[in-house]
Design a binder for these strands. Structure first.
Lengths: 235, 235
DNA sequence: CGCGCGTTTGAACATCTTCAAGGCTCGTGG
DNA sequence: CCACGAGCCTTGAAGATGTTCAAACGCGCG
């Protein structure tokens, strides 16, 4: 887990997500170089990381906190395309503008990469480009599962699927339940699942009454029957 | 457009999509090497290229014809995640199984790459890996637009968006209209847009009655008023 | 020419949304 | 420390959009 400072100190050495995301494939020596093009950035809850359409000058690693990705329609309808957590990487694009908006759902600390500099580094570190391709491929697989959910599933299946997704990513296993601490509102969940907030609420209530989940507080979901949730998710 | 055989002949030289897809970034010399790991494959209309869950041993370039990508739910509901046309590349995945099924909507000829061999080539041709990342990024942007459509748009907006998408990809501009020759059924379109075939039909009829499109045959859409279609698509 | 598949159209129906109101929670300020 | 207010969540009832079910049509192919 922890690495002792070999020679000179550099910021990435103490990074909490050092062994995840794109940096995982780099040696200490290489990481030292990458650290030169990064800046630590803090974003307060509700703050904007970048807007859809903004010039793509930075890429980000989530170090702590949670980030919401979304796309807007002109009349205000919003689709949340993804929830990001520590270790996730965001901003990858071949176009020179961001294709979606990124906002902090909780206070978050990010590691900001200069895009032009990172692209230059790719020539010298093919491993890094390989890693980016890996990440993009994984995102693609996730996006396709999301498409299936949005296009074909019923409300209850959507909410169950969404809970399973969050459970896998940020759920903490306890004796009797898997605990999900939600950093997002019901509206965020609704916009991720392509339903209304009221529908999210009603599904949560139904799941609670069926003892599939517990809701100690509004921001905490305890999954009691994973198998049943899985069944309700369709697939 | 055409290249004369410089020295020894090799299959890729006469490839119709030589200047597109992943091969576009390769020199003649490099292309010659790549050609060693490829095989020409023909798939008849309705035939399977690969199944979701199959071991991912090949990647494909569409040379001619049209291919449908889709994911299935256990009860048979299907989400079409994409339509592929000449020049498109398919099969990219970091996992060792395909995440979706690929089927030919018309007689198609494909260029098949051995995955393991291609991955080996990436080390020697970083340009190729860069190109793959570029393709994956573009697919990601497309997927996100698709998510927005499936999650937030109304039926008419979905169908209009789908038509615009097809128009941009395979539409042919004439004096008075942009002609789309549809290789897919109404069901395919429905499963792409996350609606029923009946809804597709009703939207087509409404668009026709409003003179936004013409339907000379069931398989041909003439877009008469691009701006109006754009407006109906939402965004 | 006739059969079959895919498409179109209509009418009934269901799911999910919309609209409305009330409640809970948390943060703020007295 | 408690009271108050704003924002978010929940719940109910009415309503609308899109689906389901059913039937007829039309085009292409044998």
């Amino acid at each position: 887990m922890h690495r002792s400072a070999a020679s000179h100190e550099f910021p990435c050495q103490t990074c909490a997500v050092r062994d995840q995301t794109i940096c995982a494939v780099l040696s200490d020596e290489e990481l030292r170089e990458v650290s030169r093009i990064t800046t630590a950035v803090d974003v307060a809850k509700g703050g904007i990381v970048f807007f859809e359409g903004d010039e793509n000058t930075y890429l980000f690693n989530i170090v702590s906190g949670a980030v919401r990705l979304s796309k807007l329609l002109s009349d205000g309808r919003r689709q949340v395309t993804g929830f990001l957590f520590p270790g996730d990487f965001v901003g990858l694009s071949v176009a020179d503008v961001y294709a979606y908006t990124a906002e902090a759902m909780s206070d978050a600390s990010l590691c900001r990469f200069n895009r032009a500099s990172l692209i230059k580094l790719l020539d010298r570190f093919p491993k890094l480009e390989h890693r980016l391709l890996e990440l993009a491929s994984n995102e693609l697989v996730e996006a396709q599962a999301h498409l299936l959910m949005l296009g074909q599933k019923h409300v209850m299946e959507k909410i169950s699927s969404t809970l399973i997704h969050l459970m896998r990513r940020i759920g903490q296993r306890y004796d009797d339940a898997i605990v999900i601490d939600l950093p997002m509102t019901r509206t965020d969940l609704a916009e991720y699942a392509g339903v209304t907030t009221e529908s999210v609420s009603r599904c949560f209530t139904r799941l609670r009454k069926q003892s599939v989940i517990r809701l100690p507080t509004v921001w905490s979901v305890h999954v009691l029957r994973e198998d049943e949730l899985e069944r309700l998710a369709g697939n």
